[in-house]
């Protein structure tokens, strides 16, 4: 009858050093993947805007494929599937970074497209009428304003991608969740350890939110 529930704080605290070992991998895969994903997003986002079908079509294809399939399936495909084509194994961390980069890249492409297209047409006309080339008009006038508008959406994507890395425990990357699972296997303290895992994700995502809020506030001058 007495199903009293005990949260063992000592067990929770004891797990921290072990869980912390997973953090570098979580951060590496998240931010490595997001950095590459951002570059991919800029590239395909700009192609997506092009009126030329030859440029636009590959971008649309890429975006639809990687936005429309689960990131878990993507990483399984890269880690287990691709080696069959390549003839050699792929490192689990590399596979994780690649999956985040490709997945986030698809979403960021759309964020870039939306950001650039949201800038008033008059801005472009003003730049061109001053004699700036189309490239310079984009670089000095359109892009800085678009980037500023993209910050909230990029922040969202960053948080989503950080959490997505938890899925990569399935391919054996020693990230946060994986470290927790290994620890629980010997201590049977699932409640405490998963609670701590959740807390550590929160620390990472809240730090990112806070950092972006500061960037946004500083950057909002002149809007």
């Amino acid at each position: 009858m007495d199903v009293t529930f005990q949260f063992d704080w000592q067990a929770a605290i004891a797990s921290i050093p072990y869980l912390l070992e997973g953090i570098p991998w979580t951060l590496l895969i998240s931010f490595g993947g997001l950095a590459i994903g951002f570059l991919i997003g800029i590239f395909f986002g700009l192609l997506r805007i092009s009126p030329l079908r030859l440029l636009k079509w590959p971008a649309v294809t890429y975006i639809e494929i990687f936005r429309g399939t689960p990131v878990l399936v993507q990483v399984l495909f890269i880690f287990y599937g691709l080696p069959q084509i390549l003839g050699g194994p792929i490192d689990a961390v590399t596979a994780g970074i690649a999956a985040i980069a490709l997945n986030a890249g698809a979403y960021i492409s759309e964020i870039v497209r939306g950001g650039v297209q949201s800038i008033d047409r008059g801005q472009r006309e003003a730049g061109l009428s001053l004699g700036l080339s189309r490239v310079d008009t984009f670089r000095y006038i359109i892009w800085p304003q678009a980037l500023r508008r993209m910050i909230p959406a990029l922040g969202n994507q960053g948080i989503v991608s950080i959490k997505d890395t938890s899925l990569f425990s399935v391919i054996g990357v020693g990230e946060l969740v994986r470290q927790g699972q290994i620890y629980i296997a010997t201590t049977f303290t699932a409640l405490e350890v998963y609670f701590m895992v959740a807390m550590l994700y929160l620390v990472i995502t809240l730090s990112l939110s806070l950092a972006l809020r500061m960037v946004e506030r500083r950057g909002l001058v002149g809007q």
Partner: peptide
């Protein structure tokens, strides 16, 4: 390009660069 560097324009909506 040459014409645009030699011809200035003022727009109804100003179109200053807000950033």
């Amino acid at each position: 390009q040459t014409i645009r560097t030699e011809v200035g324009m003022v727009f109804q909506q100003f179109n200053l660069f807000p950033h």
